[in-house]
């Protein structure tokens, strides 16, 4: 089973906190400074509470697989060598209402509804986060 290779824009303020945390072996997500609602994805318009801002907080590295697909045709530029790989949506423990789009390291023993935990893997100049059976 492969993994896709596409580097996120690390200088984009929208995405930098997430990928900096992954490099550090943590997961962080943004929530509203007023009402605490998780906002995923973050965008330049910010949260809906007036005057509020987004605050990135550490979140659990465990969760449940909501859905998953094994991708067999490469759509990313130059991605032919990476397929097949597994895209999954994981609902992290204690994080209501949003899902992390991520990869499963292997779909032979993990499926929809199963418990998973994050693993941080070296990936060239950065680290990547994948999920394995908990």
């Amino acid at each position: 089973m492969g993994l896709p290779h596409y580097d996120p824009p690390l200088d984009d303020e929208i995405s930098a906190p997430f990928w900096a945390a992954v490099d550090d072996g943590r997961l962080v997500l943004p929530r509203c400074s007023e009402c605490g609602r998780w906002q995923w994805y973050p965008d330049e318009a910010g949260p809906d509470c007036p005057g509020a801002s987004l605050v990135w907080e550490d979140v659990a590295t465990t969760g449940t697989v909501h859905t998953a697909t094994r991708v067999e045709r490469a759509f990313l530029p130059g991605g032919q060598a990476d397929v097949p790989y597994v895209v999954a949506f994981v609902e992290l423990d204690g994080v209501e209402g949003v899902r992390l789009v991520t990869n499963l390291a292997d779909d032979s023993e993990v499926g929809i509804g199963d418990r998973v935990r994050a693993e941080f893997v070296d990936f060239g100049d950065r680290r990547h986060v994948v999920f394995v059976a908990a």
């Binding site: 596409y6 996120p8 929208i14 965008d43 697909t69 759509f75 949506f89």
Partner: peptide
């Protein structure tokens, strides 16, 4: 799309077929 480039494409969640495949997989489940 900034969010897709940051939070979807690095995981290979890209290509319209993949967007709909996750729905189909959930339906099957």
């Amino acid at each position: 799309d900034r969010a897709k480039a940051a939070f979807e494409m690095p995981f290979g969640y890209y290509g319209q077929a993949v967007y709909f495949a996750v729905s189909a997989a959930r339906y099957r489940h």
